[in-house]
Design a protein around this nucleic acid. Structure first.
Lengths: 360, 360
DNA sequence: ATGAAAGCGCTAACAA
DNA sequence: TTGTTAGCGCTTTCAT
């Protein structure tokens, strides 16, 4: 039932509503924009007319006349599909709630032209704000340009948290520490670590967490047990190669993300090393893949959707300072990670390998 | 270098360009819209002014004055992350090329309100066109409503290919047939099949392809070897359960997608059934997961990005009939699937199980 | 081949 | 509390 239609000419406009409600278009406009100074009775009449005519304000006319922008950009450089999808859905949900459109902008964070490209984007599409996901959130030159452009932007999980500006972070360091402690509690003392891509902030923080845990447990940090990965499955394979060929193999490996953990696991299978009996493997991120491999990976879930939503909320808090419905929750207060224990980690083989003394 | 700026007031408008080029705004408009009837010299002058002032037409003003829509909607109901991401990037690329915006609309295909929701979306956002991915592309009531709304839309991989209207399809049936033949050529005769979610068109076509292959190879279709899955990893586990407990187990299982194949593989590992030595498993879709599991899955790649791009092109061909740059390629001509042979399938165990006679 | 004028549907100042 | 009048920046007639 497409409601009442007036003489066949095109979509319903604000004038139709005004006529139908017996008020001026300005009053209709007031009601539409939740402005004060409208008698409740009038407000109701207008709303009813809107309803009855199935009126929808024309977004183009609105942003033209109001000189306002209602598009939020999302710049990302292909982390995993699941990461993108989560960020996307978190941001999308929040945008819908606050009446913004979300404009996706896949990009290459290594492209020297990135700052110009983003600038173009902002100017061409008249963006109201911008969300940056890692590693785009760490491109110094881009941040510099954005600052001087005076656009409102929010970084998700940036390396540098001292920088002024908006951002949403997770405590990667504490998460990685907890994961490492989990392994230590299981009895592991010789724990390999696969670092993530050096351009991603999370890589550094996660490595710190690993070190924290070892240190607080009185276990020495052994160079040969720490290898450099790139967050990809392939790099996991390579790192596994290095780690599993050591004369004294680690009893557990902590990979900075699930893709690399899957790589190590894959290699272990190839080599006939039984997981978790002979080798424990844990990952990070709780991607769908982590459940699917065999054995399922112990990993760490981050509330990515919620982080993306929080990013939008931060943006909106700046863009529309006196907006209603904006939860006044302390930022990050509700954002907690969660250790997901599955089958890929268990106590080390009994007596198989005596744990080397801390400072031997 | 933000190019030359005129007195501090706001963004560059068409008037600035007109003034700078010494022409009327109408001429500038003509150049911008690639309209005929402009002298080449004038055209050049205008272009130069545009360049110099770094002028960007205001999209809102454009669509308001021109009463034109430049947003294409994408309605999808969460298939896998990788599917979404591929569709998204394919569509996004094409949209950018043709100067459309892409508006994402995640939805629930079982929601009885879906038709109204989509109708709202189309009206609220003044969509120029709409892309439907499976299984949304098969919701009969939605299609009916869209038809009477007279909006241009294109379905990706719909079940019903006789229906008038735009669509992009892959030959799922032939793909599944080829995959099955691949197993048969390896020597398998007792091949399990895991059907996909019944609401997805692909499920039916893929099952048909399986049947085709068996039939043309003179192998009987055995009821107990065909089980109903739901395209999810969990359903793969369940189906594996049924298939692997048969008194005479299949020597190979063809799952209609990778997630389910991973489920079967996972279960086989749990049961200590060696893959592929004792059991071959193949999937469909070539999702990232298929490489990562061990052993990597033999699967079938579909050009999803290209299909999404083709969908946009079809839309644009209708929306802007006399658009340049639109490749006049026969639809689907270039869209080919590809069998990806990896390690999860090999010849059946020698003599372990005598292949039952076709019509025994 | 080019231009002048009249809106597109809405919001923003200002009146009343 | 409400209405009037200008525009926002562009495209569209219709002249020229």
């Amino acid at each position: 039932m497409p409601a009442v239609k007036r003489g066949g000419k095109g979509p319903v406009t604000i004038d139709d509503v005004a006529a139908s409600a017996g008020v001026s278009i300005k009053t209709v406009s007031r009601v539409l924009n939740h402005e004060p100074n409208v008698r409740e009775a009038t407000r109701a009449r207008v709303r009813q007319a809107v309803e009855q005519l199935n009126y929808r304000p024309n977004p183009s006319a609105r942003s033209l006349a109001g000189n306002r922008a209602d598009i939020i950009g999302l710049a990302y450089d292909n982390p995993s599909d699941s990461y993108i999808t989560n960020v996307l859905h978190g941001a999308l949900g929040a945008c819908q709630e606050f009446d913004y459109s979300l404009l996706l902008n896949p990009c290459d964070y290594r492209d020297p032209c990135l700052p110009q490209q983003i600038t173009q984007l902002i100017e061409n599409r008249r963006l109201a704000g911008l969300i940056l996901t890692p590693p785009v959130s760490d491109v110094a030159e881009l941040l510099r340009v954005l600052d001087q452009l005076e656009i409102t932007y929010v970084s998700i999980a940036p390396i540098d948290r001292e920088r002024p500006g908006l951002y949403v972070v997770m405590n990667d360091r504490a998460g990685a520490r907890d994961m490492t402690l989990h392994l230590i509690e299981l009895g592991h003392r010789r724990i390999g670590f696969v670092k993530g891509h050096p351009d991603h902030g999370a890589s550094h923080h996660r490595f710190q967490g690993y070190c924290d845990a070892l240190r607080q447990s009185g276990i020495a940090i052994t160079d040969e047990l720490v290898v450099q990965g790139m967050f990809s499955f392939e790099s996991g394979l390579e790192c596994g190669e290095r780690l599993l060929c050591l004369t004294t193999r680690p009893t557990a490996v902590f990979a900075s993300n699930d893709d690399m953990a899957a790589g190590i696991l894959h290699l272990a299978h190839q080599r006939g090393i039984r997981v978790p009996e002979e080798l424990s493997i844990v990952g990070y991120d709780d991607t769908p893949l982590s459940r699917v491999v065999w054995p399922s990976l112990t990993t760490l879930r981050q509330p990515i959707q919620e982080m993306a939503r929080a990013a939008v909320e931060q943006l909106v808090a700046i863009l529309r300072p006196n907006h209603a419905g904006l939860k006044a929750h302390a930022p990050h207060e509700t954002l907690r990670y969660e250790l997901v224990v599955r089958q890929s980690a268990c106590p080390p083989p009994a007596g198989a390998r005596r744990p080397p003394r801390d400072d031997a």
